[in-house]
Write a protein that binds this DNA or RNA. Structure first.
Length: 276
DNA sequence: ATTCGGACCTGAAAGC
DNA sequence: TGCTTTCAGGTCCGAA
């Protein structure tokens, strides 16, 4: 579910509430949620305060004062909710972290159980993740260098988290539409001016999506359970057979191994450049 | 070296 | 109506 803008939205709505709170107890209802750890390490979070929340790509990092960090990935349907403890549990709540002197608690909810939580020493956390640069922080010249030695199709590269961290299926399609580039374009054929268009489109789309607090199509909710509004701004994702808002052509859908790409066949193809 | 399909899960929606 | 199939904001792994 959540890509960079959704995770950023969660972080923003959660930071001010969590920072300064002291962990008091935790509870796993689905032990498989905890990856690469046993529950013993979490005991060390009891009595420790949250000092910082961070996003890295699609990962959520919660740093505690004793140099340990909770590392969460929401995958497709995960939700991180900060809600009153008296709110009834449902069968998809897999983890609860409670805090001293707070009537709110942090709940990890995940219908499909793909999500994960683990705990690492703060200084080592980022090494495990093996992520490319942040799309909103990378300079154009750095961005341009990332393509050196890269092959394959443009959309595949945008989805590769070790290339750039945080872009998923929705925003890859929206970015490519904004940049007027075909998802299947071999990256070796990109022209100089197109790299700049792509870099600008990434910034434009992701910033706007953050401003609208993410895209809620099915499951995404922020930490308070609120939906994001970017759904209304989508121009190609999920819009097969609708008319392109730029040229009026019908939006097409390509399927590859269970995943779909939506694009405008008129706006997003120029010349024959290896696109089938 | 890339790309594709399947696996991990559940439930909503579409298809028949 | 009810049963079956398809599909989903992610990522990993192994086979073509």
């Amino acid at each position: 579910m959540p890509e960079l803008p959704e995770v950023e939205t969660i972080i923003r709505s959660l930071s001010s509430k969590l920072i300064g709170l002291e962990g008091s107890s935790f509870n796993f209802f689905f032990p498989g949620l905890l990856k690469n750890n046993d529950q013993d390490i979490l005991q060390k979070l009891k009595g420790k305060k949250v000092i910082h929340l961070r996003r890295r790509g699609k990962w959520i990092l919660i740093d505690f004062e004793n140099n340990l960090s909770l590392v969460c990935h929401l995958k497709m349907t995960g939700q991180l909710l900060f809600i009153p403890s008296e709110r009834p549990l449902d069968k998809h709540t897999h983890f609860i972290l409670s805090f001293k002197d707070s009537r709110y608690e942090l709940r990890f909810r995940d219908v499909r159980k793909f999500g994960s939580i683990s705990c690492y020493p703060t200084p080592e956390v980022l090494k495990f993740l093996n992520l490319g640069p942040e799309p909103l922080r990378v300079s154009f010249s750095h961005f341009r260098k990332l393509f050196q030695g890269r092959r394959g199709r443009l959309k595949n590269l945008l989805l590769n988290q070790s290339f750039l961290a945080g872009i998923g299926n929705i925003y890859a399609d929206e970015i490519l539409f904004e940049a007027k580039l075909h998802p299947g374009l071999p990256v070796s054929l990109l022209e100089e001016e197109e790299f700049l268009r792509l870099w600008k489109a990434i910034r434009f789309i992701l910033r706007m999506a953050i401003e609208y607090r993410g895209t809620s199509i099915r499951d995404f909710r922020d930490a308070e359970g609120q939906e994001g509004d970017f759904r209304n701004r989508l121009r190609v994702y999920g819009k097969e057979s609708e008319l392109c808002s730029r040229c009026g052509e019908e939006i097409e859908r390509l399927r590859k191994g269970g995943r779909s790409s939506f694009f405008c066949p008129q706006c997003q193809v120029e010349k024959n450049r290896g696109i089938d």
